[in-house]
């Protein structure tokens, strides 16, 4: 749904040449709804890991050691803003689209399984190639530059890769896409039904985000927003299923609304803590400029999220798989 909405919005921006003023201060953009939604999805991840001793004890290194390692990276960046900070930011900016790709692939598989859509392992391999091909192509395209872009005032290095790499990756991406479409068409003929659009939307949305959104400046903000929205919907569903199952009472709309409100308020508080309080606290304790502290803390929170997300959503875990693969109506409504 979020992926589809992003495609509609992209078309509107392109056709009607809509523009959003992104020249506002970083403070303003931090307060914007897109950033809050994006920020809330970080809080939702942390909530899933840190909500109980049971979940923390299942991933002791991710829950305990990784925050310390990342904190060391943040403090090192503040201590050596010319040496460590640019590479810390670079690591985050390279990892982020890889992480997006993982989520896109995961969502595609979940929606396909829910809809009984299975064109075979070769098709899934081709789709994986298409998704990660768009990641490599976009990163290689950005890193073919030889200047040093800015992230909240921190100049980070471009890798200066050959422009041919981006073209090569784009070629591989389209080749994988064509193979996937051919295999899906074969499946459609065999099964005599159309593929579920919801299973194809995440990959299509990512392709637009990574390959075509550059001329639409607003998508710098909107891509993390839609990524966050994509994430929050299944997270909300899983949260509701667990909460409603805990007390054993019959689910009702009122109870669902109440639980949703509590959960929503919780992750908004988490957003505030992660993106407002934490940078201020770290910057104050380290005696670092506010913008520098914000930039490296933001990178640190993101990297922590990539770690946590990589372990808590494994479909091979029966409880996670069962919850994510169940129809949306099973949330209790």
């Amino acid at each position: 749904m979020a992926g589809g909405a992003s495609l509609v919005l992209f078309a509107l921006f392109r056709w009607f040449r809509l523009k959003i003023d992104l020249s506002a201060s970083s403070d303003l953009s931090l307060s914007s709804v897109p950033f809050m939604v994006s920020g809330a999805h970080f809080a939702a991840t942390n909530y899933r890991l840190y909500r109980s001793r049971l979940t923390m004890s299942q991933y002791p290194l991710t829950a305990g050691l990784i925050p310390l390692v990342i904190l060391a990276g943040v403090l090192g960046s503040l201590r050596w803003p010319q040496t460590i900070a640019p590479s810390f930011i670079k690591l985050y900016l390279l990892w982020s689209p890889f992480h997006y790709s993982g989520q896109t692939r995961g969502l595609s598989l979940i929606y396909a399984r829910r809809a009984g859509f299975d064109p075979g392992p070769r098709a899934w391999t081709a789709l994986t190639g298409f998704i990660y091909g768009s990641f490599v192509a976009s990163v290689a395209s950005a890193d073919a530059r030889t200047d040093r872009p800015d992230f909240f005032g921190i100049s980070y290095p471009s890798l200066g890769v050959s422009p041919r790499l981006a073209a090569l990756a784009a070629g591989a991406m389209w080749a994988c896409g064509i193979v996937f479409v051919v295999l899906v068409v074969r499946w459609c003929v065999r099964e005599r039904r159309l593929p579920p659009a919801v299973a194809l939307l995440p990959a299509a949305a990512q392709c637009v985000w990574f390959m075509f959104s550059a001329p639409v400046a607003a998508f710098v903000v909107l891509i993390p927003f839609f990524h966050g929205l994509q994430y929050l919907l299944p997270t909300w569903k899983m949260q509701m299923q667990e909460r409603l199952a805990e007390d054993g009472r019959a689910p009702s709309r009122a109870r669902l609304a109440r639980e949703t409100a509590v959960w929503g308020a919780g992750i908004l508080v988490g957003y505030w803590a992660l993106f407002r309080a934490l940078p201020w606290l770290i910057g104050s304790l380290a005696g670092a400029p506010a913008l520098l502290a914000l930039a490296v803390t933001l990178a640190g929170v993101n990297i922590h999220h990539f770690f946590v997300d990589g372990v808590i959503w494994k479909l091979r875990r029966p409880r996670v798989g069962a919850a994510l693969l169940a129809p949306l109506g099973a949330a209790g409504a």
Partner: peptide
């Protein structure tokens, strides 16, 4: 640059099964 990018992708892939 290409080597660093390839290394980054390999490391990120490795981290998806961190724990």
């Amino acid at each position: 640059g290409t080597l660093l990018l390839a290394g980054a992708v390999a490391v990120f892939w490795l981290m998806t099964s961190f724990e």
